[in-house]
């Protein structure tokens, strides 16, 4: 496992934008797009510390998936990034006979991600969505974008992240976003409850291998929304739970609902400073910790919604937004496609 303390110091921050009308927004020139992916294919983006590891991962994939396409993730030579892991992507669908009993394809894909990331040393699946792709690495944001030729992609939701690594190592696998299926998380802050969030997720079969706190947010949303069936707002209210004094002041139904939410999902509470952007198939969500110890600003212009750590980041790409606001602590900004 290669997680030497590579550090490129830049500021901490995140930015996201979404077109509510699902207009494709270019990362730059349109050459290639994520439309390679169709609704039944999952795209695994995998990084290999050691190219040799590739074969054991591919053996595993071949045994379990129909592989439609294999390729290296296109990159451009960038002077500041002389070395990188081997970066591959696979467009796959689970073999029907592997889906035993009631197992859904999504569950099968999650199992594969957990298995590869925890059992095959030096290989990391860092993107496993149908409709979502993640690109990440160690370097300055502009260099990473150039390296992955981000300007050649287009999508209706973009999130981005830059980091000044402090408490956990900066390494290729540990860069943001953290993704699973179509969940993609970028996060600024520190989750001080990580220890119990991790142990709680482990009880449900998640394996936390990426040495960083953000991973828990991704898996927690997968657990609460996809597996437990909570809607996005309720899931966000488990992650950044209202205070008891506010719950006690609600009407009886509200008190009952939120008391139970905290009783049952206490271990899912993300405690500590954070702002999180959470992209998924149906939209984009921004959320702060319950006492807003990290900044988060939102803005709208036409059908576009922007969210970022700082207003200046939004104004850099949208100089005249129609509306700019600071979401309140723990109150999610939920944007869905029209």
């Amino acid at each position: 496992m290669n997680h030497d303390y590579q550090k490129d110091i830049s500021g901490c921050g995140l930015t996201g934008l979404i077109s509510r009308k699902k207009k494709r927004i270019s990362g730059g020139q349109i050459v290639k797009s994520l439309c390679l992916m169709t609704d039944h294919l999952y795209a695994f983006h995998v990084m290999y510390d050691d190219p040799e590891v590739r074969w054991s991962v591919e053996d595993h994939l071949k045994a379990n998936y129909k592989i439609e396409k294999v390729e290296e993730i296109p990159t451009a030579p960038v002077k500041a990034i002389p070395i990188s892991p081997l970066l591959m992507r696979y467009f796959v669908s689970p073999l029907k006979n592997k889906l035993v009993a009631e197992m859904q394809p999504d569950d099968f894909v999650v199992e594969t991600v957990m298995k590869v990331n925890s059992e095959i040393s030096g290989a990391y699946i860092f993107s496993s969505g149908k409709n979502m792709g993640a690109f990440k690495g160690v370097g300055n944001p502009a260099e990473i974008a150039e390296f992955f030729r981000i300007d050649e992609y287009e999508g209706w939701t973009w999130t981005a992240h830059t980091r000044f690594p402090t408490n956990t190592p900066g390494w290729w696998g540990g860069a943001h976003p953290f993704t699973l299926l179509d969940w993609s998380i970028v996060h600024n802050g520190e989750i001080s409850s990580y220890g119990i969030n991790k142990r709680y997720l482990e009880m449900y079969g998640y394996k936390l291998t990426l040495l960083t706190d953000t991973e828990v947010a991704t898996y927690m949303l997968d657990l609460l929304i996809r597996r437990h069936g909570l809607d996005i707002r309720t899931a966000c209210q488990a992650l950044a739970a209202p205070f008891w004094k506010n719950i006690d002041a609600k009407d009886e139904a509200g008190r009952e609902a939120f008391t139970a939410l905290r009783q049952v999902y206490g271990s899912a509470l993300l405690n500590g400073p954070f702002s999180i952007l959470f992209g998924h198939s149906n939209g984009l969500v921004g959320i702060n910790d319950r006492i807003k110890l990290r900044p988060l600003v939102a803005a709208t212009k036409d059908d576009l919604v922007y969210m970022a750590s700082e207003e200046s980041a939004i104004r850099a790409i949208c100089p005249k937004p129609e509306k700019v606001w600071t979401p309140r602590a723990g109150e999610p900004v939920i944007v869905e496609f029209e």
């Binding site: 409850s193 990580y194 220890g195 119990i196 905290r262 271990s267």
Partner: peptide, 8 residues
């Protein structure tokens, strides 16, 4: 609840 079981 964020301390409970948080051996980290």
């Amino acid at each position: 609840e964020s301390l409970r079981g948080n051996r980290e």
